[in-house]
Amino acid sequence: MNRSSVALFDYGSGNLRSAFRALERAGADVSLTSDLDAARRADGLVVPGVGAYAACMEGVLAHGLDAVIRERAAAGAPVLGICVGEQVLFAEGVEHGVRTRGVGVFEGRVDLLDAPRVPHMGWNTVAADEGMRLFAGIDPAERFYFVHSYAAKTRPPGALAAVCEHGGPFIAAVERGPVAATQFHPEKSGDAGYALLSNWIKGLK
């Protein structure tokens, strides 16, 4: 049986090594690439991201990745965003009073967590909407690994979402049509993360 092809896009900001290994373990034929045509052709495109929203968007725009993400979303071709790779899929992010336009696949804004302690770092549970493909067969008591200070707080219209609590509720994962994303790091989330990535890969073909 052929393995689904996944393009893990290197635009200068991402936890690439562990994401590459985790996607391979979950059953994908993974290529690490900065080539837009490869990103278009792959069965699945993964958009990683660590650090600041504005810096990640600068890399996305410099490589022309924003256009490919929107093309894939419009064509029904799967995309998975991870951590800041999730955040940049939203319409905008606000950090330190600076507003940065995002890719805009999802409506909404990424803001500082409303919590007495940031960053939110460590393991936490999420409450996923019924029918989310990412969480199929995953026990609701499973924990996922987070490290972030900012997050989207409202679900985009027509999307399914998983919500986590840290000071207040925020979007821990979201999926609508071909586009899915997680604020947590599935590649650092042990067996639960493996199950989630496996679910995503199974849906590529």
Rank of each mutant, 00 (worst) to 15 (best):
residue 31 S to I: 11
residue 106 F to K: 00
residue 92 E to V: 10
residue 19 A to Y: 08
residue 192 A to H: 10
residue 56 C to N: 01
residue 34 S to A: 10
residue 81 G to L: 09
residue 18 S to W: 11
residue 13 S to E: 06
residue 56 C to I: 10
residue 50 V to R: 05
residue 96 H to V: 15
residue 147 V to K: 07
residue 69 I to M: 14
residue 43 D to S: 09
residue 172 A to T: 03
residue 45 L to R: 03
residue 202 K to I: 12
residue 36 L to K: 07
residue 149 S to Y: 04
residue 120 H to I: 11
residue 119 P to M: 13
residue 179 V to F: 05
residue 21 R to H: 14
residue 156 P to G: 07
residue 107 E to K: 13
residue 127 A to E: 11
residue 205 K to E: 11
residue 53 Y to P: 02
residue 8 L to R: 02
residue 115 A to E: 09
residue 146 F to S: 00
residue 30 V to D: 00
residue 119 P to W: 10
residue 27 G to H: 00
residue 77 A to P: 07
residue 128 A to L: 02
residue 88 V to H: 03
residue 198 S to Q: 13
residue 95 E to C: 02
residue 196 L to Q: 05
residue 123 W to E: 09
residue 109 R to S: 12
residue 64 G to R: 10
residue 39 A to H: 03
residue 178 P to R: 05
residue 93 G to V: 03
residue 47 V to N: 00
residue 55 A to W: 02
residue 191 D to I: 12
residue 185 H to I: 05
residue 10 D to P: 08
residue 110 V to I: 14
residue 25 R to A: 09
residue 175 E to V: 05
residue 135 F to Q: 09
residue 112 L to I: 11
residue 187 E to W: 04
residue 6 V to G: 00
residue 42 A to W: 01
residue 1 M to E: 14
residue 163 V to D: 07
residue 127 A to P: 11
residue 163 V to Q: 12
residue 65 L to T: 01
residue 115 A to F: 11
residue 84 V to M: 11
residue 135 F to W: 09
residue 15 N to Y: 13
residue 93 G to L: 02
residue 71 E to C: 11
residue 29 D to L: 13
residue 141 A to E: 15
residue 86 E to Y: 04
residue 27 G to T: 02
residue 123 W to G: 08
residue 201 I to A: 06
residue 18 S to M: 12
residue 110 V to F: 03
residue 137 G to P: 04
residue 77 A to L: 15
residue 195 A to C: 12
residue 33 T to H: 05
residue 81 G to Q: 06
residue 46 V to N: 03
residue 161 A to D: 05
residue 67 A to R: 04
residue 97 G to A: 15
residue 100 T to D: 01
residue 117 R to K: 11
residue 30 V to S: 05
residue 79 V to G: 01
residue 68 V to H: 08
residue 149 S to H: 12
residue 7 A to D: 06
residue 127 A to S: 14
residue 31 S to W: 04
residue 37 D to S: 15
residue 41 R to T: 10
residue 11 Y to A: 05
residue 29 D to S: 11
residue 101 R to H: 13
residue 64 G to Y: 07
residue 131 G to T: 03
residue 92 E to R: 14
residue 186 P to W: 04
residue 97 G to F: 06
residue 78 P to I: 06
residue 166 H to D: 07
residue 185 H to Q: 13
residue 140 P to C: 14
residue 81 G to D: 04
residue 127 A to D: 12
residue 90 F to V: 00
residue 190 G to E: 15
residue 103 V to P: 04
residue 137 G to Q: 13
residue 139 D to K: 13
residue 79 V to F: 04
residue 59 G to W: 02
residue 189 S to G: 14
residue 184 F to L: 15
residue 87 Q to T: 05
residue 202 K to C: 04
residue 108 G to W: 07
residue 3 R to K: 12
residue 154 T to R: 10
residue 184 F to P: 00
residue 108 G to Q: 10
residue 16 L to A: 07
residue 153 K to D: 07
residue 198 S to R: 06
residue 55 A to H: 04
residue 187 E to H: 12
residue 26 A to P: 06
residue 180 A to Y: 02
residue 108 G to T: 06
residue 86 E to S: 10
residue 64 G to W: 02
residue 19 A to L: 10
residue 129 D to G: 06
residue 138 I to P: 01
residue 35 D to L: 07
residue 135 F to E: 03
residue 35 D to W: 03
residue 116 P to G: 07
residue 107 E to P: 07
residue 194 Y to A: 06
residue 149 S to A: 15
residue 22 A to V: 15
residue 128 A to M: 02
residue 27 G to Y: 01
residue 167 G to M: 08
residue 57 M to I: 05
residue 114 D to N: 14
residue 172 A to H: 04
residue 131 G to N: 09
residue 31 S to R: 08
residue 109 R to Y: 09
